[in-house]
Simulated assay, not measured.
Amino acid sequence: MNTTSASPAEAARKVLIWDAPVRVFHWLMVFSFAGAYLTAESERWRLLHVSLGYTMVGLVIFRIVWGLVGTRHARFSDFVRGPKAVASYIRGMLRGDPETHVGHNPLGAVAILVLLTLTLVIGASGWAVFNDAGGEWLEGAHEFAANFMLAVIGVHIAGVVMTSRRARVNLVGAMVTGNKVARPEDGVRSAWRSVAALMLVAVAGFWWLQWQQAPTAQGLASHAASSTHKDGDNDDD
């Protein structure tokens, strides 16, 4: 269990809870989704939209692996709980007495799993749409999944704010520094900054390779224009 029961005196020091890869993953996902969502309707920024979408998929694949082999609180086994645990946590929030968790709480775990799944759905459907592997229904599904993900993110942010206020814990700050007030034995030994650095290098390298296609990015517009033309031909039938 990751629910703490230590007395204030025992838990009066900040310890490392979130390793560097988890934090880098989190903020890269925030940046990538925001960028991809804002550029979704622009043909001019189509290359950026596609690149950020692929980046999100790559990040999720990494997170799945890290959730199996990463540090204590990064592992799915540490925070993924069953329906009873989620219901118990929600009841505690409604009573104004939320359970205290060192790592992700059960409700946050649900949001994480949903967001990871939605990212893969959005990435797969986006790839199919871009490569004309599906009809208009797939484009609609891609857009719906993206909007649904935005809604889940909104609920997640509201939950973070509510939990931070009621439990008097700065969860946003913890995802920046990696530190939370907890017992020393609840902390992780290493921040694994080397892995985080490799993540940044890999993402930057991918963006650089994608940017090399920028001179031919007009092909993206031509691709979209061709699709529009085909749709117009179909409308005439």
Rank of each mutant, 00 (worst) to 15 (best):
T117R: 06
A87G: 13
V114C: 08
V176T: 14
V86Q: 01
H156L: 09
M162D: 13
L113F: 09
A151W: 04
V172A: 14
V152C: 01
W127G: 03
A109S: 05
D186E: 12
I112F: 00
G126E: 03
V114G: 05
G178Q: 10
R183K: 15
I90L: 11
I153N: 03
V110Q: 01
W192F: 14
F144D: 07
N170F: 07
P98A: 07
L94V: 14
V110G: 00
G126Y: 00
A124L: 02
R95G: 12
A146Y: 00
A146D: 05
A128D: 11
V172R: 11
R168S: 14
S125N: 00
L113K: 09
L171C: 10
G135W: 02
G126V: 03
D97R: 15
G178D: 11
A133S: 07
M149R: 03
V176Q: 13
H142M: 07
R166Q: 09
H142Q: 09
M175L: 12
L116H: 06
V161C: 05
V121W: 02
V110S: 00
A151S: 11
V121H: 01
A151M: 10
T100E: 11
V152M: 01
R95N: 15
V102P: 00
A133W: 06
M175D: 12
M93F: 04
V110L: 00
V102W: 00
D132R: 15
S164E: 04
N179R: 15
R168Y: 07
E139I: 02
L113Q: 12
H104G: 14
A158K: 06
D132N: 14
I90W: 10
E136G: 01
